[in-house]
Design a protein around this nucleic acid. Structure first.
Lengths: 199, 199, 199, 199
DNA sequence: CATGAATGAGTTTTCATTCAT
DNA sequence: CATGAATGAAAACTCATTCAT
């Protein structure tokens, strides 16, 4: 009845199960036994694929970029790239609450210990870098308000994503998520672009 | 060697210590032994004041409003109230990372179990309610963009606070926090108010 | 709100509460806190009246004779004394399950430690002695079967009491307890007395 | 140094050790640590085989029938079946005091909680059922006193077993147990059977 | 590769007992 | 006398990790 799988595949399975458990049930439920049950193996087997549990979290963290990042076009209309990024984020994280949990909880950083905080920060900074370059391109092409504070704008955009996701989780959105996604993006867009462009 | 204190005081001490530990060291370090050491008592004593550990988290959650909310004026210039709220949030949470941890991590909800998620959500919704009423007042007084989407604006404002705090934690702010606070608020303000008012 | 009582009275209250708790809820629930709650005082106060918990059990054991023994007439018709003893036992212990628990459970002996087993045995032996003397008197007066084995009869009589009480507790009595008491006594009586006396 | 055994075997070992400890040392000594030491494993291991301690008691209770019941012939001379039952009970429980403790102490019921009392009662009722059917067969074959009260007789027989075992424990038997067994049975027998049969 | 028994070091919780108030 | 905070030792349980099978 035992299904044997090559290590690579098992590692991925386990890492993904870890994301699910942490996201849906919290770190307290993230134990070798639960993790194994989620994957369909027994607890001892986890340690055949990972040295210890924090290596599992580490692997889970490594899986995140693939789950978070759409194949974002590096070139093209900067505003469209921005929109694609924001909407993709809203949608993908809303669907996979585990990701949100891993990315926005410093409990994970603590659980990792050592360079944990730095790695989670790096993950978030990567998004900031992408946004910053989008915004800079847009500014250079004169698409944004002339007086826009670029760094503050980065905070606004990343924040809007978080604000939306938490509102969704708290049941604080007054309309269907799919509608609110667009309304938030519109409002954000208006805040960034040249007034005349909009009108 | 024994220092005796009335229950009320001890409960508060323990709840505050809990906030500190969870914020600074994470839920994994939030154990009865650590908590007791932080307070200066023995671990068994925790349970004379609280039924179990989740009741401690619950009490910690109850302490939050007092720590999060400035005596916000309910009346006055709505925009000024908004600014006061945002800046107070940025500053108070930056200083007390424990609060940020308790409010923005669903690990806490999970640890509480039962109505935990609802209680944390309620805490966040209270901020949203305050913001919504500020914005509505401002709108009625014609201070905001006529086409501003109020609900989306609530998301933007709450989000900006989160975005700022995470950026601060990740070392992603390009200037001192005190400066960035103002720049973020300015940018946010511009996004909300009538263009002519600004120019 | 505090009611102060002289030690003697409190000691009796506590001992009686102990009997109730052990009988109705078992030794596991017999803790200083529960005991104090049952009496209406706080846990620390127990140790103002008793050195430790095993002294409480000891005091409870000392209370038993008073609760178990009717003012049995030492003289008179031996068979009537026997009947009085048996029926009183059946009724009094059925009413007060705590007593049954204390007398028939060696858990108590263990909890007392030291001379505990001996003291509980002594309590039971006192009943055997009484029965033995009743039976001997009856035998001397020619009321019993000539071939009756006195010592075995003692076992039968004490046993019948136990057998009845356990059957009552197990819901194994096919008729109301008050009726079965008499039927058991009748059967026991027939087993002991001269056949011709009965017919 | 580690001895590994299949779960089934360990469970049985643990359950049997539980019977021994409860019988010989009482519920107070029935702790995971003592139990583990008795079996030769560490305390945590107990909980890999049992959910909690009350499940251990439960398993111990499940072991009892096998230890209590001889392969009693369901047919044959009813009086001989009765004698076999009584003597087997007297002997087997005298040898294994743990069994007596588990069966006659409601401390166990309390420790089990929930359906505990019912299960212990059921165990005892099973003996009553067997006795009742023996007695009924004997009555139908005209072996018993014509006026014998069957239900009271069941109480007498079960009681005699208890009375004997407690007397043995209390050192109240005036002759060797092996002799008293027979004397008690003889006395009991005389109480039940037709007088003329005996004479 | 996988199982699952065992370990050992926690962690939470309980509780008798002490003692300052 | 009584309260109730504190202690310290144990108890029940948990869990990452190891390793014989």
């Amino acid at each position: 009845m035992t299904i044997r799988k090559p290590t690579d595949e098992r590692r991925r399975e386990i890492a993904d199960a870890a994301i699910r458990i942490i996201g849906e049930r919290g770190l307290r439920e993230f134990t070798a036994a639960h993790l194994a049950a989620e994957v369909g193996i027994t607890d001892g087997t986890i340690f055949r694929h990972f040295k210890d549990m924090s290596e599992v979290i580490s692997a889970a963290l490594d899986r995140l970029p693939a789950l978070m990042w759409a194949a974002a076009p590096a070139s093209g209309d900067p505003l469209e790239r921005l929109e694609a990024f924001v909407l993709h984020r809203l949608r993908s994280m809303a669907i996979q609450p585990g990701i949100q949990s891993l990315v926005f909880s410093d409990q994970i950083s603590h659980a990792l210990g050592g360079d944990g905080p730095a790695r989670v920060a790096q993950l978030r900074n990567r998004s900031r870098d992408l946004l910053r370059s989008c915004l800079r391109d847009a500014a250079e092409q004169g698409m944004l308000r002339p007086d826009l504070d670029l760094e503050a704008a980065v905070v606004l955009v990343t924040g809007t994503v978080m604000g939306f996701l938490f509102a969704l989780k708290d049941g604080a959105l007054p309309a269907p998520a799919s509608e609110m996604e667009l309304r938030c993006w519109q409002t954000l867009r208006t805040a960034l672009v040249r007034p005349q462009v909009v009108s």
